[in-house]
Design a protein around this nucleic acid. Structure first.
Length: 404
RNA sequence: GGGGAGAUGGCAGAGCGGUCAAAUGCACCAGACUGUAAAUCUGGCGGCGGAAGCCUUCGGUGGUUCGAAUCCAUCUCUCCCCA
């Protein structure tokens, strides 16, 4: 028999890190019903297995799904193996490329594996929407499509923009929200989660469920976390992300490079610190006694701890201090065997694959970005003699130990 | 079905016979300043070469020309207007 925390307790957790709940009243009613019937709510999150590398931006909504698990509800992950073949147009200014079935399968596996860092896979139900969407025939599809109008589709901001700026929109992209909505009907979802960019799709789910005689799902959106640059949303294409499978040092370092204005948001959406700790952060940021850097250090430790361990966090911090505060060389550096006692700097940089082309290596030297054992290299023809291993440093954070 | 416009580097977007490896902005890399923050400033941003220079690139293919991102033909794709 499932037992749930009090409604208030549940609402507190659900609200934390949620952008919008449509609607709270409906949600409370559902929670009450769940308690009365002793039946967990079905909480759905659809995932698009076309970008298998998850970052802490994706983690915001995944952690929300986790919250429902913790509260005793039934979290459901719908792998959009079928919809991935369509490509979600949300937030896009162009049609997504179609994926092949093999790619989707491979990505889905990776996705679930990585999501396992956040979700409890024991109680998670995983479905593939190809199971039902793939079984629909053309007649069913036309019937489904008749539930929505072109005008309503064009209300959607990204479609509207593309339409206005004369960027192509394929017909099949209109089918995407309907397909996703069909998932909700199929599962009779009580709640669907998604990023704010998913709001339209989630609302279509409500409409469709109503048409199918179901109670419309409650929609909960989570914010799109800004990337480390503080401007654009976190995304692999902008190279401003912190990957959840990144090493502790990477996570720590990237967190340290975020803008100050993001500190609070990252605490709020990328960590599990409780409400009172959040208040403290807010107060400290507002006051003048605290150097924001120190809060950022705390934040970086929190995030590393979340995906690795507190031990890893401490180690990452030590390594970070060593490199960036003491300007020292990290303890662990990749090694490369030069196979000779005398090496020209340029070949050292390229043959070891530290730098991808000689052109680039040359530029870096010319710009004074290259040192060997702390000595700046000034000539691109410089020969380095390797009586013993030397440390090659390029830029601020690329290190290589070169062994004769 | 008819008419018109267009496809340029990661993106946006100039160029419209040689001076174009291709303006400008964003992104990115490096340097200065710092808290690997932001902002700012400086340099860079196809490859090979010490350099001169050479090679590959402007949707695909073929052509005109001493010379083509630029002209012509054709193919593929896109947008707009009319039906």
């Amino acid at each position: 028999m499932p037992k749930f925390p009090s409604i208030n307790e549940q609402m507190d957790l659900i609200r934390r890190g949620a952008e919008e709940i449509i609607s709270e009243d409906e949600l409370i009613k559902r929670l009450e019903r769940a308690e009365k019937d002793e039946k967990p709510l079905i909480v759905k999150l659809g995932c698009d297995p076309s970008r298998p590398d998850l970052h802490i931006g994706h983690a915001v909504v995944l952690r929300k799904l986790r919250h429902f698990q913790d509260l005793g509800h039934q979290s459901v992950l719908v792998v959009g193996d079928f919809t991935a073949l369509i490509g979600d147009p949300s937030g896009r200014n162009k049609t997504r490329p179609h994926l092949t079935k093999d790619e989707v399968d491979e990505y889905a596996e990776t996705y679930i594996e990585q999501a396992g860092h956040i979700l409890n896979l024991e109680t998670l139900k995983i479905f593939r929407n190809g199971d039902w969407l793939g079984a629909m025939n053309f007649h069913n599809v036309i019937k489904l499509a008749s539930h929505y109008t072109v005008a309503r589709m064009l209300e959607r901001d990204d479609f509207k923009k593309r339409y206005k700026s004369e960027v192509p929109i394929s017909i099949h992209e209109f089918l995407y929200p309907l397909a996703q909505a069909m998932d909700s009907v199929e599962l009779n979802a009580d709640i669907e989660l998604g990023g704010t960019d998913q709001k339209f799709n989630l609302l279509v789910g409500r409409d469709l469920q109503r048409d199918y005689g179901q109670l419309p799902q409650v929609v909960i959106t989570t914010p799109l976390l800004e990337g480390t640059d503080g401007v654009q949303k976190m995304s692999k294409t902008y190279e401003n992300y912190i990957g959840i499978t990144d090493t502790p040092s990477e996570i720590y370092g990237r967190t340290m490079s975020i803008s100050d204005d993001l500190i609070y948001r990252y605490f709020e959406f990328a960590t599990d610190v409780d409400a009172s700790a959040l208040k403290d952060v807010e107060a400290e940021l507002a006051g003048s006694d605290t150097n924001p850097r120190d809060l950022k250090r705390q934040l970086a430790r929190e995030i590393v701890t979340l995906y690795h361990s507190s031990k890893a966090a401490v180690e990452a911090e030590e390594a970070f201090d060593r490199i960036f505060i003491q300007s020292d060389v990290p303890h662990e550096i990749e090694e490369w065997n030069a196979g000779s006692q005398q090496v020209v700097i340029l070949s050292m940089m390229c043959d070891s694959n530290l730098i991808s082309s000689k052109r680039e290596a040359r530029r870096l030297i010319e710009q004074g970005a290259v040192t060997v054992n702390g000595e700046k290299i000034t000539r691109i023809t410089e020969e380095i003699s390797l009586e013993s291993p030397v440390v090659l440093k390029v830029g601020k954070r690329r290190f290589l130990r070169v062994i004769p």
